[in-house]
């Protein structure tokens, strides 16, 4: 069976000659959660845009379930980095969440899907509010609910938990792990946070500065289900996060001098 996602020698050039992506390759298996860890501006959002079919690549191929991407693939949902700007301020929360639902669903089914998605992010009580009346963290959860409502088989998330407080962030991380357990969703998630990538991922791909290349592919073999307290104390967790931090810091290999 073909992997859920396969990116081969992807090239993206925004036109000024310097390539944002120059021959990037990676693969994501079905039901896998893969975290992308990379420095700011290395091309992570650009990669997700190409995978989502929002920008045709200038070279290489993107395959979803073995089929080349041209246009947005079926069963794909995106949580954008600018979650606040990706909500429609004129529509209620419920209508925002329903925005991505397939057109052929009848009204009761749509309403039920919206309720369920809002319930799973803990926002059942704000369905009739407008995004402008929500906090940043709540708006972020609405954007996540909108993606969940589509019951995606492949979910792309671009720094979905940035800029929320630590507690909300932990809750949202656990929400994601629960969702992927319940629905078997494949997730490709971009983050700046090393701990988060290890906590959430089955694998962590460490990217080099622009043009992004995979400099390390870490398999996270931590016990499941994960727990915010015990998992983070696990020796394996600490080893992985140190390794990821090192590869992020020294993409070309650690310096010769032993560190103190």
């Amino acid at each position: 069976m073909a992997p859920m996602l396969e990116v081969r020698d992807l090239v993206v050039d925004y036109g000024d000659g310097t390539r944002v992506l120059d021959g990037l390759s990676l693969a994501v298996a079905r039901d896998e959660v893969v975290c992308l860890l990379g420095p700011s501006g290395c091309g992570k959002s650009t990669l997700l845009r190409a995978v989502a079919g929002l920008r045709p690549p200038d070279g290489g191929t993107v395959l979803v379930r073995g089929r080349p991407v041209d246009g947005v693939p079926d069963g794909l949902a995106v949580v954008f980095q600018d979650y606040g700007r990706s909500l429609m301020p004129w529509s209620t929360v419920a209508r925002n969440v329903a925005f991505g639902l397939p057109r052929d669903l009848d009204r009761p089914t749509r309403a039920a899907r919206v309720r369920e998605a809002l319930g799973s992010v803990g926002l059942a009580d704000v369905a009739d509010r407008r995004p402008g009346q929500l906090s940043g963290g709540m708006a972020q959860r609405v954007a996540i609910a909108r993606a969940l409502a589509c019951r995606p088989t492949l979910m792309l998330m671009d720094e979905p938990f940035a800029s929320v407080d630590a507690q909300t962030r932990a809750d949202l991380e656990d929400l994601l792990l629960r969702v992927r357990r319940e629905y078997g969703t494949t997730v490709l998630l971009v983050t700046h946070d090393i701990d988060e990538s290890v906590y959430l991922g089955d694998r962590v791909l460490v990217l080099s500065p622009r043009p992004a290349a995979v400099v390390d592919d870490l398999t996270v073999d931590l016990p499941s289900p994960r727990d915010q307290i015990t998992t983070r104390e696990d020796d394996g967790f600490v080893r992985l996060r140190t390794r990821a931090a090192e590869r992020l810091r020294y993409p070309d290999g650690a310096p010769e001098t032993p560190r103190a």
Partner: peptide, 27 residues
């Protein structure tokens, strides 16, 4: 109109008519 909103509509496969009614006109 915010390019992020345009991208969002594209990513959720919102057709032209619905884009005009739900995004463009309100915006």
């Amino acid at each position: 109109v915010d390019p992020v909103l345009r991208e969002t509509a594209a990513a959720f496969r919102v057709g032209r008519g619905r884009f005009v009614a739900r995004v463009l006109l309100p915006a």
